[in-house]
Design a protein around this nucleic acid. Structure first.
Lengths: 345, 345
DNA sequence: TAATCGAATGTAAGCTGTTACATTGAATGG
DNA sequence: CCATTCAATGTAACAGCTTACATTCGATTA
């Protein structure tokens, strides 16, 4: 970061024949500087190619203009595009983003939180609500502004920019039930350290259980993060509960894995068994049959999260959680159960 | 970043009855502090919960311990997992990563480079070689350490941690030719501002042109970044050059798009037309038929890039470019051309 | 006209470390 | 025993900006 010979605020001050304070004000609070002076300074800044040293600024102002984002993984387009939107919105306000990933592990998240705070970030973006008690305490006592994304819950003082996983899952379950399915398997992500996965599973489960008319959950499996995991879980469900006519999945990767496996095993989707996903990533448009899934407005969510963090930092008005809407995208992996299978119920 | 009441180096110095210089040395160059003193200081640091303020450190030492990564997009697992590996390696050496994305636009990249450097990053990770002349000049005159990933070229003083796109593409083309295909279409990414896309296309092209035995390129199309773009381009090629028996694609998204479209149009893959991809992302295992593609060792690449940056910064030994190997993954979208089609040639 | 005010600007004390240079004192060598 | 050296530590000058407080001076008010 050595910038040999690059002008400092002192150089500009000398050239403009004012004090450094005036330069600083001309930059940060222009209204406090008389117009002619300000214009002279601005011209000089241009001419000399002055850029304030970021770090000194941080040190002096006690604001780093940096926020940290801690996400489970980058290796999944699902978080990536939300994150990108988040970053872009921050950049518009001259803030920068530090990223860290946890591999879906709360201990690791706790470690990253400490690291980022030690670095002096002004705020944090966190995914979901599951974190270690230590982390929660820490966030509270240090009073670090943060927003939680990918989840939403009302009735707390936490600030969310996300959606209601439970409700979205419930809606999907309803859609599946409405098509006539009564024996439904649930294939979710691992719910340890992951409230989103848990909420989705519960949303599915509660809705099916409450539906009546003979609707029941034929099995609940939590699987890992790969296509293969999805495939294996699919095979499991079908082995133990062959009467299953639909499987609702906690994410698209698992769903796609399930479909691929079904194809291999010559189980016809959706004729014999319907499969639904969650997230609407690219995969869902490529897999055969294409996947009926829940679309999550990632870009909107990312921007909203950034916006909330920004208002928290400028503390003019209180930041209010925002809930973004999800939507069911109908494709071909969901259909009414075949009569033969249905009659079994 | 307000840490009210958190101890500073002064507090520790006072408690240990030494000067701040000694504390600083105990932390940064322990060998220069007598053992008993050092141990006393270390204990005190523990006890008081002292963490050096990152930013003052930066200001005083003129090293930010931060490096910037500028990638085309985050919304693609292709860069994401390499990036994650990069970040993890940096974290091991107590460095942090700032990310920015360009949307595949050089002007935007140039802007991001300036922004990150103004922020005082110690080094940069850049993708590929295409950048504006201004950016190149800037990097040279400022002498910022940087490494280029996702590309590799020998015979320059640039430092790479990547692979040879041209050669990898050429290998794929050879594989396709060896299976007997003679009329081959090329479906690449947009090559403006993108040397990787360009190299891949050239690698395909040159290899086919040079092969002899009647091998020829039936068309070259550059398409955008979506599945649909791939599908449209596929349709185009098949319309204008129906004798085509294989299409080599510059990335998996385009290839998957092509396959999906082929399925819709009832063109049998691979019987009527073979399709190959590049990158080996998840999609390639899900699409039907599964995609024969070029696998890129992203994790290794990311770590290598971090390693190179780190050695450049510690400037003990010179950093030498590393080339990672790519590999062709054979799946089902590539087969020998059907006799009927082949005889046409 | 003197008192009051407020806009524009200056002064200088931070912010929290790092590090070149200075000092001390004990060990080593001739 | 004196000169030299070196390890351990201290002193204090930065790094480059922000900002509370002080100053100046022309305009307003009673």
């Amino acid at each position: 970061m050595t910038k040999p010979g690059y002008p400092t605020i002192d150089d500009v001050a000398r050239a403009a024949n004012v004090s450094t304070a005036t330069i600083s004000r001309a930059i940060n609070t222009p209204s406090k500087v008389a117009k002619p002076t300000r214009e002279r300074i601005e011209a000089l800044i241009q001419e000399m190619g002055y850029t304030p040293n970021h770090w000194s600024r941080v040190l002096a102002s006690k604001r780093s203009n940096t926020i940290g984002a801690i996400i489970p993984t980058m290796a999944n387009s699902m978080f990536a595009s939300g994150l990108q939107a988040f970053q872009e919105r921050l950049a518009e306000s001259d803030m920068t983003m530090l990223v860290a990933s946890t591999g879906y592990d709360s201990e690791s998240e706790w470690h990253q939180i400490r690291a980022l705070i030690a670095q002096g970030v002004d705020g944090l973006l966190l995914i979901g609500e599951s974190r270690t008690p230590e982390a929660q305490d820490f966030l509270k006592t240090r009073a670090i502004p943060y927003v939680i994304s990918w989840s939403y819950r009302s009735g707390t003082d936490l600030i969310f920019a996300g959606f209601d996983n439970y409700q979205a899952a419930a809606n999907m379950a309803t859609t599946v039930l409405d098509m006539g399915h009564r024996h439904i398997g649930i294939l979710g992500g691992v719910s340890t350290d992951n409230d989103r996965a848990r909420e989705r599973i519960n949303g599915f489960k509660d809705t099916i259980d409450a539906f009546g008319d003979g609707a029941k959950v034929t099995g609940v499996i939590e699987a890992g993060y790969s296509l293969t995991d999805g495939g294996d879980a699919f095979a499991d469900i079908m082995r133990h509960a062959p009467q299953t006519t639909a499987i609702v999945c906690g994410n698209d990767v698992l769903a796609a894995g399930a479909i691929v496996r079904a194809n291999q095993q010559n189980v016809k989707v959706p004729c014999e068994v319907s499969i639904t996903g969650f997230d609407d990533i690219d995969l869902s448009r490529v897999v055969q049959p294409t996947l009926t899934t829940v679309q999550v407005p990632q870009i909107a969510m990312g921007r909203a999260a950034a916006e909330l963090l920004l208002t928290q930092l400028s503390d003019t008005k209180p930041a209010l959680s925002v809930e973004v809407p999800t939507q069911i995208i109908r494709r071909h992996s969901l259909a009414a159960p075949a009569a033969g299978y249905r009659s079994k119920s």
